[in-house]
């Protein structure tokens, strides 16, 4: 059975200009111990999906259609109290802004112990601390820094502490939302490698959210490319990265520099994503698409299978 099933998910934000459909008709599944990378530019809905998986949509956001089923539990139909028991226990999160995600006036040790004891009140302080020490060893943080305050940590250490915290209760799913964006490339590389290793070791499912398709291709089994609230291409990581079919994915791949291979000019993607408050007929990418045809603007594109497990939401690929 799949660890996570997302069916026809739609998420809307109530705004002054009407309902903004941040996520529209997204489907994917994740097997236990597998990782899925969600990529796309800012505002494409990837973080919104991550928050919805935690039941943490902001007050003006709600799931308008579809459902999320995690490990047999229907997240999308849960009350706040039920969600609270699932959070961190079954699904934890490594935050986008790890720099500020730790409470500045509480010791790291206390914040870690708290995460454990909220869900396992029967665990004694000593036992919880022992567990935290184990987690510190796991993510390569020195034990003597356990009782520090967050401001005494470097950026990389904070990120490791958050990763350690995310693993505290052996969750089945971890959502990593831009976990390394604020770090320099060397620390980023180390942390990504370690994350991959931890995932293998503990058989955790990971949803990896990033705007950097090359990182995602490196870390994840599967890639889902998102554009304007929709999934536009999905499939095995290598397949999507090296053999991308959707014009948007191709543009994403070529907008990042590579170290190896010949120097090529980076290709920015011209134009802007559409406004998501109204209804959009036809393909959402057509205004920026080099393959745009007259029919693209009129008809909703259909999913095409272009390789084993490799799907594209485009009529012309």
């Amino acid at each position: 059975m799949a660890l996570l099933t997302v069916e026809n998910l739609g998420i809307g934000y109530q705004t002054a200009k009407g309902l903004l459909k941040a996520v529209d008709g997204v489907n994917f599944t994740l097997e236990p111990g597998h990782s899925l990378g969600l990529v796309g530019e800012s505002g494409c809905g990837k973080t919104t999906i991550g928050m919805a998986l935690m039941g943490l949509l902001p007050p003006n956001g709600r799931i308008t259609e579809g459902r999320i089923v995690l490990d047999g539990l229907e997240i999308s139909a849960m009350s706040e109290d039920e969600l609270r028991k699932v959070r961190w226990n079954k699904v934890s999160m490594i935050f986008q802004a790890a720099m500020n995600a730790l409470n500045p006036v509480k010791r790291i040790s206390a914040q870690m112990v708290e995460a454990i004891q909220v869900h396992r009140p029967e665990v004694s302080d000593e036992a919880a601390l022992t567990r935290v020490e184990g987690l510190f060893n796991l993510v390569g943080l020195p034990l003597e820094r356990l009782y520090d305050f967050p401001h005494q940590y470097s950026g990389g250490m904070k990120q490791r502490a958050i990763i350690a915290m995310a693993l505290a209760l052996n969750p089945k799913l971890v959502i990593a939302d831009e976990p390394t964006t604020a770090l320099d490339v060397i620390v980023q590389d180390q942390i990504l490698k370690e994350t991959k290793e931890l995932q293998r070791q503990f058989n955790i499912g990971i949803i990896f959210i990033s705007h950097d398709i090359s990182i995602v291709a490196d870390v994840c089994h599967q890639i889902g490319v998102m554009y304007a609230g929709q999934l536009v291409e999905s499939g095995p990581a290598e397949e999507v990265f090296f053999n991308s079919k959707h014009p948007y994915t191709q543009a994403l791949v070529s907008s990042f520099p590579t170290l190896a291979g010949p120097k090529t000019k980076l290709a920015p993607i011209p134009g802007e994503p559409p406004n998501l408050t109204g209804t959009i007929p036809g393909c959402r990418f057509c205004d920026r698409c080099p393959k745009d045809t007259a029919s693209c603007k009129l008809d909703h594109p259909q999913w095409q299978e272009v390789g084993p497990g490799h799907h594209v939401l485009c009529d012309h690929c």
Partner: peptide, 8 residues
């Protein structure tokens, strides 16, 4: 947000 995500 993290505190909320932790299930507090």
């Amino acid at each position: 947000v993290l505190a909320r995500a932790k299930g507090l």
